[in-house]
Design a binder for these strands. Structure first.
Length: 408
DNA sequence: AATGAGCACGGCACATCATT
DNA sequence: AATGATGTGCCGTGCTCATT
């Protein structure tokens, strides 16, 4: 189980509450959500209409949950207490049209342990968003499992939320808000060391992304924190290459000194692993000195197709197989490049869609200050813009989009 | 030039966590 | 209940930048 994906509703990404979520709570809750998401998408519940005002019940084996969440604690009472505290967490959902309207709900209203199983309820609002997945972040729970610091979890979820675009530059207070550290680490050095550095280091070490940050000052005070994320997508490939190299090295040891000597005087382009095998074979039928002389002779005579000339000059025509192999390798390469290109195209497409969404979301959360600035800008070019049919809202959204694009 | 705010850094004491 | 590990708050010193 390398990938255990949870499409987590964005409202649940940065849960704000009086008490902060410990990492055990956060991990456990992610698994509760994942379990519920499975049910609601694939079991008989998926056929039913989810009603916001109802609550829904799910069940998961205790050990399975502990295992998946990476909880190694054996003290069941301690876990019980953690789960109890988890129940006190409240999430607020604000109406997008009218910010005066809001809904507050407990993220885990009921839980029961019976026969090594957790039986728990979630409110319809949450279940519905798990099912519909309109604004969500796709979290790989496997990556999260080993994160120790609670701030790592929070920042990882944040980073993944903005995976396809860019983590917006945040005011320091904002970062403190989402990490629940407004009243903690007042000393910025401690905040940096205990929260930012620790989380970035841990995420970079243990997950599929690399996270770093830059700070920007406003006078003396550090006013902005700009997170930077890098994908580590080549990691698996690199590992494979590494292990492949090791196998090659082991193979190398098996060849005799004579084979290696001959191999070393081959033309550079012919120093392939297969040549060693072939040389070993040839050495059984021909003397070392003979082969050595042949190689030297053929190197001078035929620079274009050394090996073919060489083998012919001895007696056989094995080189054709190599040619075929080379051709195949070429085809493979072309195929891979095509796939890569398509992948890139798809990414760009998604990026565009995401940018649009992002810009709209940012517009909805725009500060008055920014709004005023944009209004000023708009008024400057009002005549032209109106003639083209661009109103203030679409002007701002396209401005935001433009800025986002620039960042990328 | 003097003053002070905000941060960097190391270090200490105490609190809390995670486990036995 | 005990304990080692880890987390947290706070202090002193020193630096830089901004204000007066």
């Amino acid at each position: 189980m390398k990938n255990e994906m949870l499409n987590k509703p964005n409202q649940l990404i940065a849960v704000k509450s009086q008490n902060q979520l410990t990492n055990i709570q956060r991990k456990a809750y992610n698994i509760f959500l994942k379990n519920a998401q499975n049910e609601v998408k694939f079991s008989e519940l998926s056929k039913k209409n989810i009603k916001v005002e109802n609550s829904y019940t799910f069940e998961i084996d205790c050990n399975l949950l502990h295992n998946k969440a990476g909880i190694s604690i054996k003290d069941l009472k301690y876990i019980e207490k953690e789960l109890e505290n988890l129940m006190g967490m409240i999430v607020t959902i604000r109406d997008k049209e009218d910010k005066e309207n809001w809904e507050k709900l407990s993220i885990l209203p009921r839980i029961k342990k019976e026969n090594h199983k957790y039986n728990y309820s979630l409110f319809g609002t949450i279940v519905k968003s798990l099912k519909e997945q309109t604004f969500f972040t796709s979290l790989n729970l496997f990556q999260i499992k080993n994160l120790k610091s609670q701030y790592s979890l929070i920042l990882y979820e944040l980073a993944i939320r903005y995976r396809k675009s860019k983590i917006p530059k945040m005011r320091t207070e904002e970062v403190r808000k989402i990490t629940n550290t407004q009243d903690r680490y007042k000393d910025f050095y401690n905040f940096r060391k205990r929260v930012l550095d620790r989380a970035c280091d841990e995420i970079s070490e243990k997950t599929d992304i690399k996270l770093s940050y830059e700070t920007k000052r406003n006078g003396r005070e550090i006013a902005y924190i700009n997170f930077k994320m890098e994908e580590k997508e080549n990691l698996e490939e690199l590992k494979q290459i590494e292990s492949f190299k090791k196998i090659e090295e082991i193979k190398e040891i098996k060849y005799s000194e004579k084979v290696l000597n001959l191999y070393n005087i081959l033309p550079k382009e012919d120093q392939l692993e297969t040549r060693k095998k072939q040389l070993e074979k040839l050495l059984k039928e021909h003397s070392y000195e003979m082969l050595k002389a042949d190689i030297k002779y053929c190197k001078k005579k035929s620079k274009k197709n050394f090996w073919g000339y060489f083998v012919k000059s001895i007696n056989s025509g094995h080189y054709s197989i190599i040619e075929v192999e080379k051709e195949k390798a070429k085809e493979e390469l072309v195929k891979k490049q095509k796939i890569l290109e398509e992948h890139k195209k798809e990414l760009k497409k998604q990026e565009k869609i995401f940018l649009e969404e992002q810009a709209k979301e940012m517009f909805e959360n725009i500060s008055e200050n920014e709004l005023n600035n944009y209004e000023k800008e708009y008024k400057k070019q009002e005549k032209i813009l109106k003639r083209v049919g661009v109103n203030l809202e679409s002007f701002i959204i396209s401005e935001i989009k433009y800025k986002l694009e620039e960042k990328i």
